[in-house]
């Protein structure tokens, strides 16, 4: 049995009066790719954002229940800054900062106090290499990141996250704004990142979930209907609703 990275116990989440997550229980294992699937509005992003406490940015959010990360409840008395350096996030829309490619990568480590120029240089190169972007940008590190293509921008955002050397990377539909070739590159990337990181990805593409994930959780109206090995979910789900969804019979 693999080591458990996140252990969520009866988590409820409310936006004001609206309950977006209902009694979520899920154990996410280390060095695996876990996929969240489900129809729009079922709470996938909401749950993902619980894992690095991004919901703190939304005033109306109230939570009950526990999310144990390693051995501490992240909703308890923890250092949020530290949590977010250990649990990185890549967003649906590529959102590089309006700075140079180099500065985009160096920004996070610099904010943590890393000043040594040589170390930063190495870190930038390493992160870009891991994100399969180094060859394409090594001659234009000082050019604005906004001049990159959408797919390159998204790999830059992944590189930026890797530069923090996190333990977990959360990805919210990271390829939904990209063309098939850029998508393929990022999927390859995820498989190669798996050995160093725990990856949790939200996706609307069944094929993507099937290709890249070890385990899949099916969300429906704020609940996790089923969570199991990906092949099992896709070939022989226990719940009728899961089957309806993955076969496209779902309304």
């Amino acid at each position: 049995m693999d080591k458990i990275k996140f252990d969520t116990k009866s988590l409820d989440l409310f936006y004001g009066d609206f309950q977006a997550l209902k009694s979520i229980n899920i154990k996410i294992c280390e060095n695996e790719v876990t996929a969240f699937i489900g129809p729009s509005g079922c709470g996938k992003s909401t749950f993902l954002r619980c894992l690095n406490r991004m919901n703190d940015l939304i005033d109306s959010v109230k939570m009950k229940g526990e999310i144990i990360f390693d051995d501490k409840d992240i909703n308890g008395d923890i250092d949020v800054i530290n949590l977010r350096t250990r649990v990185g996030m890549v967003f649906q829309k590529p959102n590089p900062f309006p700075m140079s490619i180099y500065d985009n990568i160096a920004y996070g480590p610099k904010c943590q106090g890393l000043k040594d120029k040589r170390k930063l240089d190495t870190l930038v190169k390493e992160s870009l290499t891991k994100a399969a972007l180094w060859e394409e940008v090594k001659d234009r590190l000082n050019k604005s990141a906004l001049g990159l293509s959408g797919g390159q921008q998204q790999r830059l955002c992944i590189a930026r996250t890797i530069a923090m050397n996190p333990e977990v990377i959360l990805m919210d539909e990271p390829t939904s704004a990209l063309d098939p070739i850029a998508t393929a590159k990022i999927e390859d990337l995820m498989s190669s990142l798996k050995k160093d990181y725990t990856i949790i990805i939200v996706t609307h593409s069944m094929q993507q979930a099937g290709r890249i994930s070890d385990k899949t959780a099916f969300f429906l109206m704020g609940e996790i209907v089923e969570f199991d090995e990906t092949p099992k979910i896709f070939t022989n789900p226990n719940d009728k609703r899961t089957e309806d969804y993955i076969t496209g019979r779902f309304g």
């Binding site: 800054i81 530290n82 977010r84 350096t85 967003f91 959102n95 309006p98 920004y107 904010c111 996250t161």
Partner: peptide, 25 residues
């Protein structure tokens, strides 16, 4: 762009680091 704020916070920066280094520029 609100995406800058989310990106910055997700990298574990403080509010002030975001304000000085990303938002104001």
């Amino acid at each position: 762009d609100n995406g800058y704020k989310e990106a910055s916070y997700a990298l574990g920066t403080t509010r002030w680091q975001y304000i000085y280094k990303v938002m104001l520029p």
